[in-house]
């Protein structure tokens, strides 16, 4: 298997955003990162009643693809949910091949329900959520350290408060996972 983490643009055309995330991923995970071929969101994931996409179905769709990568990180502007939850920023297999992040509620200028924020802040949020969801695919669970990128975030303030980095415990857990 290729030692590459691939970003999959799902109905998103923001190349600057994808490039920024792509550049950041190898600083945390010991893999190259590339932007793969874009594709449409699977229709099967759309919940007409809620007007949102069910994240778990997108993960299933990504995981079943034949893309040659150690991990697949989907990026979308669509609003994601899982049953019983109002919305989610992202979801990932724990552990597994696929993860997904939505920019919908991260302060995107063009879409979303949150008040728009400035561009660098928006990009940093997407980077944090991307690195966070990839962490789950490598077996990392939510971390109690509020500055660790693996801390659970329910609202924007907590995303903004955390760093883009794993704390040292999570780094060691990642190391253990990769060397096991």
């Amino acid at each position: 298997m290729s030692s590459v983490i691939e970003l999959v643009a799902l109905d998103i055309t923001d190349q600057e955003l994808l490039s920024s995330l792509c550049a950041e991923v190898p600083t945390t995970y010991p893999f190259q990162c590339r932007i793969g071929a874009a594709e449409k969101l699977p229709v099967s994931a759309l919940d007409m009643h809620r007007g949102q996409y069910q994240a778990t179905r997108i993960l299933e769709h990504l995981a079943s693809s034949d893309r040659d990568a150690v991990r697949l990180l989907g990026i979308t502007t669509a609003d994601l949910f899982t049953p019983i939850l109002r919305y989610i920023f992202g979801e990932a297999m724990l552990p597994g091949k696929a993860a997904i992040v939505s920019t919908h509620r991260l302060g995107n200028l063009s879409r979303g329900t949150q008040p728009p924020c400035d561009r660098p802040l928006f990009i940093s949020r997407v980077i944090k959520e991307g690195i966070h969801e990839l962490g789950h695919t490598f077996g990392l669970t939510h971390c109690a350290d509020p500055s660790c990128v693996m801390t659970a975030s329910r609202e924007m303030a907590r995303i903004d408060a955390k760093s883009t980095q794993l704390c040292r415990y999570c780094r060691i857990l990642l190391d253990d996972f990769l060397t096991a």
């Binding site: 899982t82 019983i84 509620r105």
Partner: peptide, 22 residues
């Protein structure tokens, strides 16, 4: 309500009247 796949979500906020959403 997760199904068979073990996943972890970020930004998870329980919906008000959560069971009515399913």
């Amino acid at each position: 309500f997760q199904g068979d796949m073990a996943t972890a979500a970020d930004g998870a906020t329980l919906a008000r009247d959560a069971l009515a959403t399913i």
